[in-house]
């Protein structure tokens, strides 16, 4: 028996919105520790990794580890039937063919349940080493979204350069070129969540497809902060912490000049 209850059901809506344009089908693994999902996009250029700890749920029970093969677009359709203030409960048997979703309005006046058919999904699970990155940038997620959106109008590839002073995002295209530099905040600059913080061992410059960075920014509503982890010649990690429950991280392979 698997049962997971989230008072803030809208969180689940936001999570699926953040994944479904990149990944169509995915296995969500449920264990005593919580929910995890790892899935690559169809071209195997990027990967999305979701982690929701059991302690972040209002109620969590998982007697036996199970894998839920989900069509994310279909799950998104069902979650659209939930109100934004609804409590959402997920339920499945030990060898499930379906996932039950129950939505309860805050005053308990409306209770609905839906069953989503599960699928057998063959996926390749990639082993991602726990690595120390040369640069870690923490910045407001809305700022990152704006930069990616603005630069995508000009070209396809973004050069991200991180130094101690700041992070530079550069693009060039047929119409011209552009740069946006965000500088490290000084300690006195306002709210923690509005700050740009850079931890750097050595400067890093990497090239990335803006199209994919744009997919990742669908996670912006999940939190005020995004973290970018970079080292030379390896995939970037774009991490959105989800307050009190876990995180969603995207890995994107760089473009390399050959």
């Amino acid at each position: 028996m698997f049962e997971a209850r989230l008072t803030e059901g809208s969180l689940l809506k936001k999570i699926i919105e953040a994944i479904k344009d990149l990944v169509q089908e995915a296995n969500v693994d449920c264990s005593e520790e919580g929910l995890t999902m790892q899935a690559m996009d169809a071209s195997h250029v990027s990967l999305c990794s979701l982690n929701m700890r059991h302690g972040g749920f209002d109620h969590y029970r998982c007697d036996r580890s199970i894998s839920l093969g989900l069509n994310l677009a279909n799950l998104g359709k069902i979650l659209k039937c939930a109100g934004n203030d609804d409590v959402v409960t997920l339920k499945a048997e030990d060898e499930p063919d379906t996932l039950t979703l129950m939505f309860e309005s805050p005053n308990q006046e409306r209770i609905s349940d839906f069953e989503l058919k599960l699928m057998d999904i063959e996926t390749e699970h990639l082993g991602i080493p726990n690595e120390e990155y040369k640069c870690t940038i923490s910045m407001p997620s809305g700022e990152f979204q704006r930069i990616v959106r603005d630069l995508a109008v000009i070209g396809e590839t973004c050069i991200i350069t991180c130094t101690k002073e700041g992070v530079k995002f550069s693009v060039s295209g047929d119409l011209g070129n552009g740069n946006v530099t965000v500088r490290q905040s000084s300690a006195a600059d306002g709210d923690e969540k509005d700050q740009v913080k850079i931890q750097m061992e050595e400067p890093v410059t990497l090239n990335f497809a803006l199209r994919y960075l744009g997919f990742f920014t669908k996670a912006t509503p999940l939190g005020s902060t995004v973290k970018l982890h970079m080292s030379p010649d390896v995939p970037i990690v774009v991490e959105y912490p989800i307050d009190g429950i876990g995180s969603i991280s995207y890995f994107l392979a760089p473009k390399i000049d050959e």
Binding site: H44, V45, L47, I128, V234, A253, P254, I256
Partner: peptide, 14 residues
């Protein structure tokens, strides 16, 4: 020219 790498060339299947 710039070439888009795939993730499989960085991470191995587990």
């Amino acid at each position: 020219a710039m070439q888009q790498k795939r993730l499989d060339s960085f991470f191995k299947p587990s």
